[in-house]
């Protein structure tokens, strides 16, 4: 079970900025361990973000995204206290959903 995401969402002048730090190895499948065995690829493939129930971003990641991925984006609207929900799925089928309130 992956660790929770850290999510910050802040509304200013009618725009909400969302910043997310995920916890994930984002293993490329190109590296070898100390015994020379290839470390299997393991990375987040898809991600969605919702404001209350409305989809505000969907993204696809490849193995070039850094370990513990970072994502920042902005959408119009959003009030203090509204819910922002972020979900990801990885190539092994693991998933994680976390939420934060707009500050």
């Amino acid at each position: 079970m992956a660790s929770p995401m850290r999510i910050r969402a802040a509304a200013k002048d009618g725009v909400t900025e969302v910043r997310v730090l995920m916890s994930h190895v984002m293993e490329t499948g190109q590296r070898k361990d100390s015994s020379g065995e290839v470390i299997p690829a393991h990375f987040i493939t898809e991600l969605t973000a919702r404001h209350n129930d409305k989809l505000v971003l969907s993204a696809e990641f490849g193995p070039s995204v850094s370990t513990n991925p970072y994502l920042a984006f902005k959408f119009k609207g959003g009030e203090k206290g509204d819910k922002v929900t972020v979900s990801w799925v990885d190539n092994k089928g693991d998933s994680r959903t976390d939420e934060a309130q707009i500050a």
């Binding site: 725009v15 984002m26 490329t28 190109q30 409305k54 989809l55 505000v56 971003l57 969907s58 993204a59 696809e60 990641f61 490849g62 193995p63 070039s64 995204v65 850094s66 370990t67 991925p69 970072y70 994502l71 920042a72 984006f73 902005k74 959408f75 119009k76 609207g77």
Partner: peptide, 28 residues
């Protein structure tokens, strides 16, 4: 996209109506 990476496409984003065309991430 990172031209010289073995997997060149790093990330893609679909921007719905109402979301600004402004995204940021971090890559290897």
């Amino acid at each position: 996209m990172i031209e010289k990476n073995p997997y060149m496409l790093a990330a893609s984003f679909t921007i719905p109506e109402g979301t600004q065309a402004e995204v940021q991430t971090r890559v290897k």
